[in-house]
Every structure is written in structure tokens, then in C-alpha cells.
Design a protein around this nucleic acid. Structure first.
Length: 112
DNA sequence: AGATTGACTGCAT
DNA sequence: CATGCAGCCAATC
């Protein structure tokens, strides 16, 4: 298995994140094969420009928006989620109890 | 090849 | 809930 496949798996999963919903790096990391959460963040950080991966629907385990090396997008991600109906707290966090995506298992149209 | 960094997480206090 | 320490893997210098 190549690392590219791993990244592909991560992107595929993030693409499956429904509207107004979010997931955590750890969850994605476990779904794609149980790799380290670092890989997930790293994969998203390696996202190309013309991507269709809703990376903005990925937050840390606390529902906070992590800071990127670029320092750009920190605000964008929050804006994106807000436009999807996600509510933020004074601390800049969202209600994982409502927006947390438990994975493709919640998808009605699975191959099975 | 060694050391450091990075979009993180889990456990204990 | 916040803080401090250790584990994790790949990219970078």
C-alpha cells in the first residue's frame, strides 16, 4: 500500500462528510485504516488548490479549528461551517454532539 | 542518517 | 474543562 493510497482514502472519506456536519482528525485516521491523526492533518495540508474535498468539515477532537502553518484558512474554515448552519461557541468551538459525523455508517446508501 | 517540525489524540491530574 | 506528558508517522533541513 502506497502512502498516496492513504491520502486518497482520507480525501474520499472527507468528501463523504455530509452538509452541516463535521468530523475529527482522529475519526478519519481510524476510518482510513487506523493511521496516526497526524497523517490526516498532513494529508489535508497537502490538499491541492483545485480540490473538492470539504476539508473545512474536519476539526480537532474538541471541535476547534486548528491553526495551519500558512495561517490562512483559520477564519475561512469557521466561515464555511457557519454558512452550513454550524453554530460556534465563544471559545470558537462547535457542538460536536450535534455536528459530529459518526462516519459513512450513517449514510443510507451504502454498498450493502 | 539524525534531529526537528506538524491542520492530532489519549490518559492522568 | 484546562494543563502536562508520551505516542504516532511523514515531511523537511
Amino acid at each position: 500500500m502506497s502512502r498516496s493510497d492513504l491520502y486518497d482514502r482520507i480525501y474520499r472519506l472527507v468528501e463523504r462528510v455530509p452538509f452541516g456536519r463535521v468530523t475529527t482528525y482522529g475519526r478519519v485516521a481510524r476510518m482510513v485504516g487506523g493511521c496516526s491523526p497526524r497523517q490526516v492533518g498532513y494529508a489535508l495540508a497537502s490538499l491541492p488548490e483545485g480540490n473538492r474535498v470539504p476539508w473545512h468539515r474536519v476539526v480537532n477532537r474538541l471541535g476547534e479549528i486548528s491553526r495551519r502553518s500558512d495561517g490562512v484558512g483559520d477564519d475561512i474554515q469557521r466561515r464555511m461551517l457557519e454558512t452550513e448552519g454550524v453554530r460556534f461557541d465563544e471559545r470558537g468551538r462547535l457542538d460536536l454532539a450535534r455536528c459530529l459525523w459518526d462516519g459513512p455508517a450513517e449514510e443510507p446508501g451504502e454498498s450493502g
